[in-house]
């Protein structure tokens, strides 16, 4: 059976990973290759690398960075930001990206999406949509201009799939960095509108929010950025909480936290004194492949 995916999103600005809050405030986190190495070790299912300064600075994707990052990445890597030509997409794939992401700006050159899909396959092309809740329903947000457009996110998702996208990445702008949980109505609307897999992003504040989005919608994958940066093993703890709630996810990491106590919000709690006492004598050999 196909498992739900837990994805880490790394927002990169001027070459460093940043914590993004509401698409306005950015706090530095660190070098992308280090972040990838940790996330990989914690058993994340996929990594999304979004370069938010490429389009703004009128440049193409940072191939050297993607190459450095891919060297340490043993999970699928989705790269977005600044892809304006077929050559960009091709070079990204050669640098180690598995999929490339396009946002609403790509609709100005709709042929590009179709062209990339024809050459690299639909599974390689992801449509990224920034959705914003307004008084007149959900609208697409243009982060380059910093403006809300009049387009409905579900309509945009359908248009992108028609052009050749094999996956949709729906991000909630107002929930971004808020720790309030995913925007379930937005996600479900987009999910019902298309036949391809949907990844949701924006608002996760803890393991409980992952349980909420998988129980409340049919979304295929959930992504978070900020919470994964600041807590050790946060990916594995989120997966342990999901497995407990009966959501089918992959949890192959040796430290799988299935025996641990999880608090109300899905946070890890101290083991019992007796369990800690017994652990003193467990020796875990490093796995040789």
């Amino acid at each position: 059976m196909l498992k739900k995916r837990i994805i880490a999103t790394l927002v990169v600005r001027q070459g460093i990973v940043v914590q993004s809050i509401g698409f306005r405030t950015y706090l530095p986190v660190g070098r992308p290759e280090i972040a990838i190495e940790f996330l990989n070790d914690w058993g994340v299912d996929e990594i999304v690398l979004l370069d938010i300064s490429a389009t703004v600075e009128f440049r193409g994707p940072d191939m050297a960075m993607v190459e450095r990052v891919a060297k340490r990445c043993r999970v699928p890597l989705l790269v977005g930001g600044g892809i304006r030509t077929l050559a960009h997409a091709r070079e990204l794939v050669h640098s180690g990206a598995d999929k490339v992401a396009f946002n609403q700006a790509s609709l100005q050159t709709p042929d590009l999406l179709t062209q990339v899909a024809n050459v690299l396959g639909n599974q390689c092309v992801v449509g990224a949509i920034d959705g914003l809740r307004t008084t007149s329903g959900y609208k697409v947000y243009d982060y380059v201009l910093g403006q809300t457009t009049s387009q409905d996110p579900t309509d945009l998702a359908q248009a992108m799939v028609r052009l050749g996208c094999g996956e949709i990445f729906i991000q909630s702008v107002d929930r971004d960095g808020s720790h309030q949980g995913f925007d379930l109505p937005l996600i479900q609307a987009v999910r019902e509108g298309v036949d391809v897999p949907v990844i949701c992003c924006g608002g996760a504040g803890g393991a409980a929010h992952f349980v909420e989005v998988f129980e409340g919608t049919d979304v295929h994958a959930a992504s978070a950025a900020n919470i994964f940066h600041y807590t050790e093993h946060s990916v594995t703890v989120a997966k342990a909480a999901l497995l407990r709630a009966g959501v089918f996810v992959r949890n192959d990491a040796r430290a799988n936290y299935l025996e641990n106590l999880l608090g109300k919000n899905g946070r890890l709690e101290k083991k019992t004194d007796q369990a800690l006492e017994e652990m003193l004598f467990v020796r875990i050999e490093k796995e040789v492949i």
């Binding site: 059976m1 498992k3 897999p197 992959r250």
Partner: peptide, 27 residues
């Protein structure tokens, strides 16, 4: 959904060669 994207359990019919050092249903 199509494409089939994500982690799925693979059931090997026989283990020799490719699946020799993997579990019964690896992801």
């Amino acid at each position: 959904a199509v494409p089939h994207v994500g982690w799925n359990e693979v059931r090997p019919m026989r283990r020799e060669h490719l699946f020799s050092n993997l579990s019964e249903s690896p992801n």
